[in-house]
Nucleic acid binder design. Structure first.
Length: 589
RNA sequence: GCCGAUGUAGCUCAGCCGGAAGAGCAGCGGUUUCGUAAACCGCAGGUCAAGGGUUCGAGUCCCUUCAUCGGCUCCA
């Protein structure tokens, strides 16, 4: 997950400023090397990124890994030569002339506003159109490494040519570079797709179809724990939970407008009794039917209708990714229908609920974004302003820092998106709170107000976990598969030392099960070491080793997955210890 | 969808210049009964992603399709 673009504040932090200049300079040195090896290459742009840099090239043949090695080696030569970076300003005409063999540079020059001062940076024989800033000399690039190459559209436009983008990273010291590479390796070790297989949580099958998830027993128990907690807290917060079908007639999607502007992302219709039915890509129209099933009074509002609703969307083949981007997924969806003066409190309640739920799953860091009215929109500007202000107030009154995405709202309403930060500091989009000024119109939603008039309610979509699939994938990576006790699919493995201890092991397991714990006995005819290894690899929180000594004392030797051996403990103490660990979690008893 | 790479046993992977499909782990059968991260012996396991082509001969070369991976674009 590379986060492109360097945040404003980065330029003011001395270390970030140095990295920014170093990476930008490394990009130039890389382009220099590429042009030495491939003189016919046309260059695109080469900016620094949040943790590295890239440069785009138009070349006849895509780069190979061997090319990258040659490029990197030439870069090291340039760095050793310690060539100075020299800035020059020049006129538009001379810039056009200087880059006359570089069509992409021509385009950049043409698109720059007239008042822009054009500048170039040179080092050695290489010159690039560039604002800077750069290091003083190539020799100041301390630690650099090229990572990979991939296609990228010129200017991010899929109708423009596809260039070859080489990614690299640069750091102020070899240690920092190695630490970064170690972070990448750690992220790979935590990959939920790998852990999902190793821990037997879920699979995806070519025979079933891409982007369609099969939850295995171990993933299944975790999902039901998540769902149970979710339902419980939603009931307590005044939500009503409903169920709705997976398909609906074309007419429904016609009314909702989905067939007009979302059809490309919907699964093709099926013909039943000469009627077209579509798999649902969203739950909204169904919840709206719940709302419309009666003439609503203002006394009933706010009405909060929630569902763990499974939807299907045709996502383009190249975007699918494990559990993070799938074609069939379950949203923890809810729609809130309310009065204008209830809006702010409702949004605030959603925020509070979000932080309570996320905190229960161990997520404490958030990145909040408020998105406002785009150029194309539906609804009245006054309603947009009111809704946007209530979103903002809900954030401000809770002292929540947030960023603005001006014009980044959906066409039907402003929204707040919340990203959670995982254990490796990576952001994941989960929560969204969106106003909708479109569907209430289309479905002609009304309520009877206290004057006896029919009024239009506000409608708010919200999902907290987002999709259960994605959230589960994030959980796996956040904990690297070592889930907290309350979520662990298997909480304790009872390990008999020899076959003659199997019977006692079963008694131990039975007592723990009676106390409400998920326990299995490993009664294979294997050595204890092997059983411990197995439990370790499965990241089972507790291993209860039982042999002659424990059987005689109604005890178990407790080992935790961090490798600590806590010695023999009476079973009652073991149960008390595990119960204490559940205090303060959704599984507290 | 686009660019590139990949697809061999349940899993992870080897298989050279086109000439008789391999290993480890897992599984199964036996032996072993063990004190905190892998006991020993044996057995079985394959339409080499699918389809087409070139060739005396294809896991290997070519084409198409499917899927996966890394990116891009997209993500009401």
């Amino acid at each position: 997950m590379l986060d492109h673009g360097t945040p404003e504040h980065a330029v003011h932090d001395p270390i970030e400023s140095l990295r920014h200049r170093m990476r930008h300079s490394a990009a130039h040195v890389m382009a220099d090397a590429v042009l030495q090896l491939f003189p016919e290459a046309k260059v695109g742009i080469g900016p620094p990124t949040a943790d590295g840099f890239y440069y785009d090239f138009d070349v006849a043949q895509p780069f190979t890994p061997e090319d990258l090695e040659r490029i990197e080696s030439l870069m090291l030569d340039t760095i050793r030569s310690n060539a100075p970076f020299v800035r020059e300003e020049l006129s538009r005409d001379s810039a056009k002339a200087m880059f006359d063999s570089q069509p992409y540079k021509q385009e950049i020059i043409d698109d720059l506003p007239d008042e822009t001062t054009l500048s170039i940076y040179r080092h050695g024989e290489f010159t690039d159109l560039c604002q800077g800033p750069h290091l003083d000399n190539t020799g100041e690039i301390t630690a650099v490494k090229l990572l990979n190459v991939a296609g990228a559209y010129w200017r991010g436009d899929e109708n423009r040519p596809m260039l070859q983008r080489i990614y690299g990273t640069a750091w102020e010291s070899q240690q920092e570079l190695e630490a970064h590479l170690e972070r990448l390796a750690e992220a790979e070790r935590r990959d939920h797709r790998t852990l999902g297989r190793q821990l037997n949580l879920f699979t995806v099958h070519e025979e079933i179809g891409p982007g369609l998830i099969v939850w295995h027993p171990r993933g299944g128990i975790m999902r039901s724990l998540i769902e149970d907690y979710w339902r419980d807290i939603h009931y307590r917060r005044g939500y009503s939970i409903v169920y709705s079908p997976h398909i609906g007639r074309a007419r429904l999607w016609q009314t909702s407008g989905h067939l007009d502007f979302y059809r490309d992302s919907m699964y093709a219709p099926m013909q039943i009794d000469e009627q077209e039915y579509f798999l649902k890509p969203m739950n909204c129209p169904f919840h709206i039917q719940v709302y419309r099933s009666a003439l609503r009074s203002y006394r009933e509002l706010p009405l909060r209708i929630a569902e763990l609703g499974t939807v299907y969307r045709y996502e383009r083949s190249g975007v699918l990714h494990g559990l993070m981007r799938v074609r069939g997924f379950t949203q923890d969806d809810a729609h809130i229908f309310c009065l204008p003066d209830q809006v702010e409190a409702e949004v605030g309640d959603v925020l509070d609920l979000t932080f309570e739920i996320m905190s229960a799953f161990g997520f404490e860091d958030y990145d909040i974004m408020l998105s406002t009215r785009p150029e194309k929109y539906v609804g009245e500007p006054e309603m947009w302003d009111h809704a946007t202000e209530s979103l903002r107030q809900a954030l401000v009154s809770r002292d929540l820092p947030y960023g603005m995405d001006d014009g980044g709202g959906a066409f039907y309403g402003p929204k707040i998106d919340i990203k959670i930060k995982d254990a490796l500091g990576r952001d994941w989009q989960c929560t969204t709170v969106q106003f909708d000024f479109n569907l209430p119109e289309r479905f002609d939603l009304v309520f009877q107000d206290d004057q006896g008039n029919r009024s239009r309610p506000y409608m708010v979509h919200r999902a907290i976990l987002g999709s259960l699939e994605r959230f589960f994938g994030v959980l796996v990576e956040h904990y690297a598969g070592a889930f907290p006790l309350w979520l662990a699919p298997l909480q304790a493995a009872v390990i008999p030392i020899a076959d003659r201890h199997n019977e006692y092991a079963e008694q131990v397991a039975a007592q723990l099960r009676d106390a409400g714990f998920r326990v299995e006995v490993d009664d294979r005819s294997e050595r204890m070491n092997q059983k411990i290894r197995q439990a370790q690899l499965q990241k089972t929180p507790y291993m209860l080793v039982v042999g002659d000594r424990e059987a005689d004392a109604d005890a178990a030797a407790v080992r935790t997955r961090d490798g600590d051996n806590h010695g023999a403990m009476p079973l009652a103490d073991v149960i008390a210890m595990l119960s204490a660990e559940l205090d303060g979690t959704p599984a507290a008893r």
